[in-house]
């Protein structure tokens, strides 16, 4: 299996802060893989995802896409974001255009595509996410689930090979969550990879092929869910034993 995304030994500290948020994180993502990323709040998941899209630059370490080390000049960043798409937790933070069609066309137009090609991309992405009937609507006139799907369409219109989702399903109701996972299945069938940061262990167990567990800026486990949840050593190391048992460990406030 070809490795599409690879992160090697990332170290990162936010400017002005003394505590490093990422302390030597390494992981990889293969073509067509469905990987879940879990960890407590503050474990560095979001920071890691921002590195994978080139928003943040590590103090040490590198990010490789399709084997190539990613650079941070404008042209390089453009090529990077063509391949790696990122959607965030709150759709209101990602929908910035006045109308749905305009928002979805934002990415393709930034890539320098012609108007007609951009239109095609918008139509395709909208169809994939089931929001074609919303194209003419103002972005504020959508429900939460509709907004999330429009945000996803906006990223998919750029046709990335890798999709990073930072807790993008957490605000959705169970039925909308299923809907989104169905869209993810279609993407995977096209050969795309998905890295989903999530708190939802049910999704992790049923949907993910592999689980990466982070704590305090480090990767503590990287294994298929069946293995992770049955191995007592892994469970203790990651602290998931308490979650699985439903009992607060004595050392955690």
């Amino acid at each position: 299996m070809t490795v599409l995304l690879e992160v090697r030994d990332l170290h990162f500290c936010y400017p002005g802060s003394a505590e490093p948020v990422l302390r030597g994180v390494s992981l990889h993502l293969g073509a067509g893989e469905k990987v879940a990323l879990i960890g407590s709040n503050g474990s560095g998941k979001s920071t890691l995802l921002l590195h994978c899209n080139g928003i943040l630059r590590p103090d040490r370490g590198q990010v490789r896409v399709a084997g190539q080390v990613m650079g941070y000049e404008q042209q390089a960043l453009r090529a990077w974001r063509r391949q790696v798409g990122l959607i965030f937790q709150y759709p209101d933070d990602q929908l910035f255009s006045a109308s749905v069609a305009q928002d979805i066309s934002f990415g393709p137009l930034n890539l320098g595509l012609s108007d007609s090609l951009a239109r095609q991309r918008v139509a395709d992405a909208a169809a994939l996410c089931g929001v074609t009937h919303l194209l003419a609507r103002p972005t504020h006139a959508l429900s939460g689930g509709e907004k999330t799907r429009v945000a996803l369409a906006g990223v998919l219109a750029m046709e990335p090979r890798i999709l990073l989702a930072d807790e993008a399903l957490s605000t959705l109701d169970p039925w909308m969550r299923l809907h989104m996972l169905a869209i993810f299945e279609r993407l995977v069938a096209q050969g795309k990879s998905i890295l989903l940061a999530t708190h939802d262990l049910h999704t992790v167990r049923t949907w993910a092929e592999r689980v990466i567990v982070m704590r305090a800026g480090q990767v503590l486990a990287d294994a298929p869910p069946a293995q992770l949840f049955s191995d007592p050593v892994l469970l203790t190391r990651t602290g998931l034993d308490a979650v699985v048992k439903g009992v607060l460990p004595p050392d955690r406030p």
Binding site: L50, D93, Q94, A101, G107, V122, M158
Partner: peptide, 21 residues
């Protein structure tokens, strides 16, 4: 600020093109 991050992640560098309706 958050929106700025989302904009950057979709390749925005300052010039804006819009599809005609």
């Amino acid at each position: 600020q958050r929106m700025q991050t989302a904009l950057a992640s979709r390749g925005y560098y300052g010039d804006l093109r819009v599809l005609p309706l």
